[in-house]
Design a protein around this nucleic acid. Sequence first.
RNA 1: GUCUCAGUAGCUCAGUUGGAUAGAGCAACGGCCUUCUAAGCCGUAGGUCGAGCGUUCGAAUCGCCCCUGGGACACCA
Length: 572
Amino acid sequence: MEEIKQKIAKDILDILDIQSISAGEIFDKIEQPKDNKNGDFSYPCFSLAKVMKNSPANIAKYILEKMQVDENISKVEAINGFLNFYLNSQNIVGKVLDKVFHEKENYGASNEGNNKTIVFDYSSPNIAKPFHLGHFRNTVLGGAMYKLYQKLGYNCIGINYIGDWGRQFGLIIEGYNRFKDEYDFEKSPINALADIYARISTLAKEDEKVMDIARENFKKLEQGDKELYKKWEYFREVSLKEYNRIYDMLGYKFDSYNGEAFYNDKMGEVVDILKEKGVLIESQGAQVVNVGENMPPCIVLKSNGSTIYATRDLAAILYRARTYNFTKAIYVTGSEQILHFKQVFEAAKYLVDEKYQKGLVHVPYGLVKLKTGKMSSRDGNVVYIEDLIKDAVQKASQIIEAKNSNLENKEIVSKQVGIGALIFNYLKSTKLKDIIFDLDDTLKFDGETGPYVQYTYVRTQSILKKANFDISKIKSQNIDYGMLSNECEIELIKKIEKFPEIIKTAANEYEPSILTRYIVDIASLFSKFYNDCMVIEEEESLKQVRCILVYATSIVLKNGLSILGIECPNKM
RNA sequence: GUCUCAGUAGCUCAGUUGGAUAGAGCAACGGCCUUCUAAGCCGUAGGUCGAGCGUUCGAAUCGCCCCUGGGACACCA
């Protein structure tokens, strides 16, 4: 498609013969009309009017008269100053389906990332707290980007930068010492810890002495106090175990769980380097790095001499540059940290080579809020992901019971559908938008939802199975692509053609929702096809070629959903 | 106060980086299961693109200025 567009641009350029305009400029102007009645490509001639001292309509006509198109274009029209190109659909159908036919499962993949590594910093829950919806959004976004880049051939490293260090652990240790006997740690250690944390936080607010003990605890912890370290280690262990249980349910894996504590002994070097370069200066008692006039400085050491989260982020950048030699390091965090990462990335130029510093990318996303306001585990105003998964799976199970009670593997399918609905829902809209959580809305299974797309996939599988279709037994020279000429078939094929490009765009813009919406479009076009065109009852050659279209659709749906982290059942 | 992100149908959101008559889903109403799974398809209705001014052949999109909401603004992460 791109080549066709380039050819059009070159042809127009040759006809115009104007020095001041390049083929690239023309190429950029060529667009895809919203309404396909206006063609597949369109070149607006308005900007030429001044240069050529003629009306856009006349210019369009002029180009049209001189234009000689090849077999890829079936028709060219000049309307309202637009030059509209209609693709030869027969030609396109053959090209696209043949490509999928040959590439099969690899359709959409690319090798642009060969020998390049990208590290993804995402999910990153704070230990001793249950996994909630905010973490879920982060995980789902980061996971999708990880897989997008993997599809483009990059070596991807998923780092779960666990929040396992900081003063709060001094506080939890104090709470644990006071209240541990009141809880059943065998049953649910993380809920016990969360509850203890809430209680001790309240106490600390009322009583400054409690906070002093917490500070003291954390100081000892940093200095390597054995007994406190053991407790901290226990908190970390039970938390990770719990998170991994959730990740298993959702289907996410990480390559590293090096959290904040991991950098405890690596910050000294950061401070040394900054000092050596003379960029670490004193300001209001703290040691800071200036990062430009329109930003507050990046604090590296607090006025009491201890480190801060920015110090750990800097140490992590240095470590990851050395360990992974990354071309990009992508950080997925809430949008409230935009300024923080701007500062840290700016300060990082004193630590690592320019190629690493330029590869640092912050991908912010909007908050998940409740109707009652911002989520806060302290006041219990929070939705735990496990509860939500239960609700979703249960609903899926009820629907299966009502619609297809003879289904095998009901339990597995319920999970796939329920969880698919959740993930899909959180990848549907632009990442920067805040989401206000609404249970009914989240558990919708009709319309533009995960289950709808999964259901569409199930339909493709059902057809292929009933048709006894086996892609490996088809000989490409026997396929008569020309038999696909219905509008719904052509539209679907044109959409399938865009899959590789969509993956690139979604990755480049760090916006999985582009892919999510694309998948909905595919599902919707396929459903139209499903309603309008029969497959298995048709005569052999038509049946075969339609099966290939169904197969191509199923590849796009399955691969697309898999990138988003959603599984496809064969029946539901 | 400064910076930043947002405001599009009753609700949830798209809108190809300035193009042709602003599109989906949900909810509402009407149709389609003796045909590959109706978690579907088709149709009807629903709009002052927050307000105003400007830039130009052309603005939801760019600029200015208001209004409304979210967030950030140094020792929390």
